[in-house]
Amino acid sequence: MREFTFHRAASVADLPAGATIIAGGTNLLDLMKLEVIAPEALVDITRLPLDRVEPEGEGLRIGALVRNSDLAAHPTVRRDYPVLSRALLAGASGQLRNMATTGGNLMQRTRCPYFYDRRMACNKRDPGAGCAAIGGVTRNHAILGASDHCIATYPGDMAVALRALDAVVEIDGPSPRRVPLADFHLLPGDTPHVETVLQPGEIITAVILPAPVGGQQRYRKVRDRASYAFALVSVAAVVGMDGGRISHAALAFGGVAHKPWRDPEVESLLLGREPSDALFHEAAEILLRPAQAHGENAFKIPLLRRALMATLRDATGMETTA
């Protein structure tokens, strides 16, 4: 770990230029110890008044410092946005969730093991250095939206649910703005080190949820052990039914791309149709048409199809029995 200065921010206006934000520290400190990143200045934002969950219009405004545990347990979230609660509880461990914040969770870095290992070439850590993951151990890498420069995934769970809920990210800084979560994370392209639209000097202050849409809400996360493992693939689903037909479908996918993945074509196929295996197969075909395996992660293609089939059956009231 390199030496750094530490400043505790008293207000959002008090963020020193060029300082790296530390919130729960559960990701940042690991990266600093390994010197994957080596900020010269840290600004601790945990004293800022951003730790509230409050109504906003018909929706909900979640402060950037609301802890994952508190958000998952919040009665309104549990009642109106259960997919968010479920996704949060499927992530990390109880101890980590007690520390992890909403803003930090959105900003968490990939778990590509080559990114964490300074001996290995990595375009994300060191732009232009090359990508050691390609041709290496690629079990947790992307099948959708990757590039020749980077095949890493965004590893988080919460953001996958937020994507299905059409959340919006509130950003403060020189030019305060709101950005749909859909546009917040970026695909790697040839600049994998640029992961979000957040600019230096900007801070996430909140995440806004639109009015609840009801429906059946599911978060299905498939992982290598029962707890405390990142998703191999995950599916967040918000599905409404009307008269035996699908009236609302919002599906987001985790563990498969550099950002929470969503495909409007898949959803429009489902709308107005009666649930059936044939329909769901077709949906999976569309979803996976652009999928590309990189060695060991080829299994994610059938696994994502299976996870989608199961989630859709479950959310539309079909049997999922063995």
Partner: peptide
């Protein structure tokens, strides 16, 4: 490659 306890999967309580 899997050189920490997040990546080397010892069974958890669950």
């Amino acid at each position: 490659v899997s050189r920490d306890l997040a990546e080397y999967h010892i069974p958890t309580h669950a």
